[in-house]
């Protein structure tokens, strides 16, 4: 039996609640969390599961899978699977977030992959982050002593979700706002080379042929998330359909943002970003 695995087996805990999980960090401060395990496996593909020496598996912690919603915000439990997120009916989950979740992995993987697991991938921003950032989400991080709220801007500035030892990302709070127009486009997947991957997110709201609010970002894996705030400010308040001058200016703004990246994008990425920006601006007019 047990061919292919060597050495002493890791110590694995399966707490049934958040409280139990947090308490386990007291005797095991070096323990690592295991949620869906999908990102973990894609990093270490092999016939056995690579677990850290002390593992806290969250698969039984049902209180981390709750979805609550009210007039002001939507709260998503950290261990909520992506398919559970997609199954939430009604208007509560923003279309932008669902569009992003729908193209992560396969349907079977989305039954395992969790919201917090996606956001806490080692060293990178997960695919759910760009939409959550545009939506103005906050992240609740808890340890045994209490909790803190991390604004999405802080995560965007850091380029990753930073958790201290003994901390768990327990909730994602998304403000409830009406965004009739949302755009999400992802190019590439885990098998695509870095310089061909890219994701664009956009949100817009218009009233009486005037663009009331506009948010836009693109995510290049090696350069991080780029939110073009100058463009957002310039387009907000503009009359629709946009004049030729505004459209051209929008593309120039995006081109400037691409040029200023510390790691220049590939020709393919630059071309795709500009092409999709043009498409989004056209959609603003038609919708």
């Amino acid at each position: 039996m047990s061919a292919g695995v060597e050495g002493p087996p890791p110590l694995v805990y399966s707490p049934r609640s958040l409280g139990e999980a947090l308490a386990l960090f007291v005797p095991n401060p070096q323990a690592q969390l295991f949620a869906g395990g999908t990102a973990w496996q894609s990093d270490y593909l092999s016939s056995s599961i690579r677990l850290p020496p002390v593992t806290i598996s969250l698969h039984l912690a049902d209180d981390l899978r709750k979805v609550t919603y009210g007039e002001r915000w939507l709260d998503l439990g950290g261990a909520l699977s992506l398919n559970q997120l997609l199954s939430v009916g009604g208007p509560w989950v923003p279309a932008l977030l669902k569009d992003a979740a729908r193209v992560i992995g396969t349907s079977a993987l989305r039954n395992l992959a969790t919201v917090a697991g996606n956001l806490c991938r080692k060293g990178v921003l997960g695919d759910l982050f760009p939409p959550l950032h545009l939506l103005g989400a906050q992240f609740e991080v808890r340890n045994l002593r209490g909790s803190r709220w991390v604004p999405s801007q802080q995560v965007a500035d850091d380029g990753k979700m930073t958790l201290a030892a003994g901390e768990i990302l327990t909730r994602v709070r998304v403000p409830q706002e009406d965004w009739p127009l949302s755009f999400y486009q992802k190019i590439g997947n885990i098998r695509t080379p870095w310089d061909e991957r890219l994701a664009l997110s956009g949100l817009a709201r218009s009233k009486n042929n005037q663009l009331e609010a506009f948010r836009f970002s693109f995510h290049l894996p090696h350069s991080g998330l780029v939110r073009v705030r100058e463009l957002e400010v310039e387009l907000t308040g503009q009359t629709l359909p946009l004049a030729h001058r505004e459209r051209t200016r929008a593309l120039e703004r995006i081109d400037e943002a691409l040029t200023q990246l510390p790691e220049p994008p590939s020709v393919f990425q630059r071309d795709r970003v500009l092409h999709m920006t043009r498409w989004i601006v056209t959609r603003l007019d038609s919708d």
């Binding site: 694995v12 399966s14 395990g37 016939s47 079977a108 039954n111 395992l112």
Partner: peptide, 20 residues
């Protein structure tokens, strides 16, 4: 792929200890 508590999952990434 298998159904684990009625949800389809790739059994190659599910740790055995989780099926108890």
């Amino acid at each position: 792929h298998v159904l684990l508590d009625s949800k389809e999952v790739p059994s190659c990434v599910v740790p055995f200890f989780q099926v108890r």
